[in-house]
Design a protein around this nucleic acid. Structure first.
Length: 350
DNA sequence: GACACGTGGCT
DNA sequence: TAGCCAAGTGT
């Protein structure tokens, strides 16, 4: 029996019952693939269900507001996925009559669909013989063939791709690709892989050479940089200020409170005069009601130390252009916000 | 081709 | 705990 046959039979028997596996409809597959990019099934599952419920097809998604899409995406991270999801929904709905491109190169042209996702949709929805190579597959293949090049090096990636196509089951590429990923997710784990339960262990060179624990090799990422945020929760009765984040930094398109960013940790007393300057009022006009403890928020590439400062609107202060928009506290929950802000408000209230 | 881009769970 | 990892893509 061949590797792909063993793998396929194992998959049929052991695969998890996941909602996007109930259909090969490209809309469902596409949506699930975008949600699951760099995201665990456990984390993305509810988002998928919420999206399918609110936007059951490409047209309902295309006709939504981007902000509505971002709100539903809130908390999932990598928000460009949501913006690109919406843009691509509109492209398909309005320029392609709601019909997905049915092959790899066609899919690859769409925003938010790269090598992996194009291959996943082409194989799962349309049966095209293309290898979908994600983090799981890289690990599985690097061990299967005992690849000594770093999997994030050019040569390593080349080898992974070559070997992936070598073992691709062209008679059922969709099943094969999902089986490879399922194996990586449940058996061929990063640490302490369950080689005893692996359906293709007999083909595994790393196991044979006792190298499973060392593979895959990988270059390390740079360590995150530190940032220091101070959010101003400026209240005027039941009204507060909110500001939309710009392009070119984290959380593009999400909302936040007016922000003062410092180069380094700054004490509350130093902050007071910065705030006064920011608001263009004198220190004595400031009516600070509360200063939060420092909240640490870790991103993959940034560590943010953040403080929230609550203050009442200085009496004669007028909002200058660019400071933000004024909303009522009731409206707050309708705006997409970063997890850092969502969590703080959930805990402390507005 | 290297780096930016979130969040949460696991070791 | 600090770092790694997760169904990657865009620039």
């Amino acid at each position: 029996m061949t590797l792909s046959k063993k793998l396929g039979e194992w998959y049929e028997k052991e695969k998890r019952d996941l909602p996007w596996r109930k259909s090969s409809n490209p809309y469902n597959i596409w949506l699930s693939e975008i949600i699951l990019q760099q995201t665990r099934v456990a984390q993305g599952l509810n988002y998928y269900l919420n999206f399918i419920e609110k936007f059951p097809d490409i047209f309902s998604l295309a006709n939504a507001d981007t902000e509505e899409v971002l709100k539903l995406w809130q908390g999932l991270g990598y928000y460009s996925r949501a913006r690109n999801l919406h843009e691509t929904a509109r492209t398909i709905a309005f320029n392609m009559k709601g019909i997905f491109p049915q092959n790899y190169p066609g899919l690859l042209k769409l925003k938010g669909i790269g090598d992996y996702t194009a291959a996943a949709i082409a194989s799962i929805s349309f049966g095209k013989p293309v290898a979908a190579i994600d983090g799981n597959v890289k690990r599985v293949v690097s061990r299967l063939f005992a690849i000594e090049d770093e999997v994030n090096s050019t040569r390593g990636k080349d080898l992974i791709k070559t070997f992936s196509y070598e073992i691709l089951d062209v008679s059922n590429p969709g099943r094969h690709n999902q089986a490879m990923m399922e194996l990586g997710a449940n058996i061929c784990l990063p640490s302490k892989p369950k080689c005893m339960e692996c359906p293709i262990s007999q083909y595994c060179l790393a196991l044979k050479e006792n190298k499973v624990a060392e593979l895959p090799l990988k270059y390390k990422k740079a360590s995150p940089r530190n940032r220091y945020f101070t959010y101003l929760i400026i209240k005027k009765g039941n009204r507060i200020l909110l500001k939309k984040r710009d392009k070119g930094d984290i959380w593009e398109g999400l909302y936040e409170f007016p922000l003062i960013e410092n180069i380094q940790e700054t004490s509350p007393s130093e902050l007071a005069s910065k705030i006064a300057g920011f608001l263009n009022v004198s220190d004595s006009q400031l009516n600070i009601t509360k200063i939060s403890e420092t909240v640490i928020h870790k991103l993959s590439h940034q560590h943010i130390s953040c403080r929230f400062i609550h203050l009442n609107f200085p009496g004669d202060f007028e909002i200058s252009a660019g400071t933000g928009i004024e909303i009522t506290t009731d409206e707050f929950e309708k705006f997409p916000v970063p997890r850092l802000i969502e969590r703080y408000i959930d805990n402390k209230g507005l």
